[in-house]
Simulated scan of single mutants.
Amino acid sequence: MEARTQPGPGAFDLSLLLQALQAYRRGDFSVRLPATWEGVAGRIAETFNETLEETDRITRDVTRVGHAVSREGNLRRNCSAG
């Protein structure tokens, strides 16, 4: 995989990967890598995007449960409820 300074459509671009990783580190789970990347780069993008989706889901669940416990004092609340 070679980083390109001016990537065309579907081209792997290390700067996009770096930007996405930095956003993730800051807690921005909305960032996604292009689904147009092919080969190993495409698998990296797919795995990264899935990881962010899962992290976002877990973060929302923990926040919701934390709210239920701290504000409502309810440890028995159904964790799958929205």
Rank of each mutant, 00 (worst) to 15 (best):
A3R: 15
A3E: 03
A3Q: 09
R4L: 12
T5D: 07
Q6K: 15
P7G: 10
P7C: 10
P9H: 15
P9A: 15
G10M: 09
F12Q: 06
D13F: 12
L14I: 01
L14G: 07
S15A: 10
L16H: 05
L16M: 11
L17V: 15
L18Y: 06
L18C: 04
L18N: 11
L18M: 10
A20D: 04
A20F: 03
L21I: 08
Q22R: 15
Y24K: 13
R25M: 02
R26Y: 04
R26D: 03
G27Y: 03
V31M: 04
V31G: 02
R32K: 15
L33V: 05
L33C: 04
L33M: 05
L33Q: 05
P34Q: 11
P34T: 09
A35L: 08
A35Q: 11
A35G: 13
A35Y: 02
T36L: 05
W37V: 03
G39L: 00
G39Q: 04
G42C: 01
R43L: 07
R43E: 15
I44M: 07
I44D: 06
I44F: 07
I44K: 00
I44H: 03
A45F: 02
A45W: 02
A45G: 06
T47R: 06
F48E: 10
F48D: 10
N49V: 07
L52E: 08
E54A: 12
T55Q: 12
T55W: 08
T55C: 13
D56P: 00
I58R: 15
I58N: 09
I58L: 15
T59P: 04
T59D: 11
T59W: 08
T59H: 13
R60A: 13
D61P: 00
D61R: 15
D61K: 14
D61F: 11
V62W: 02
V62Q: 11
T63H: 12
R64T: 05
R64F: 02
R64E: 03
R64Y: 03
G66S: 11
G66E: 09
G66Q: 11
V69M: 12
R71T: 14
R71Y: 13
E72Y: 10
G73L: 12
N74H: 08
N74W: 06
N74Y: 02
L75A: 08
L75Y: 14
R76N: 12
R76H: 11
R77V: 06
R77A: 11
N78L: 08
C79S: 09
C79F: 08
A81E: 07
A81G: 02
G82H: 10
G82I: 01
G82S: 11
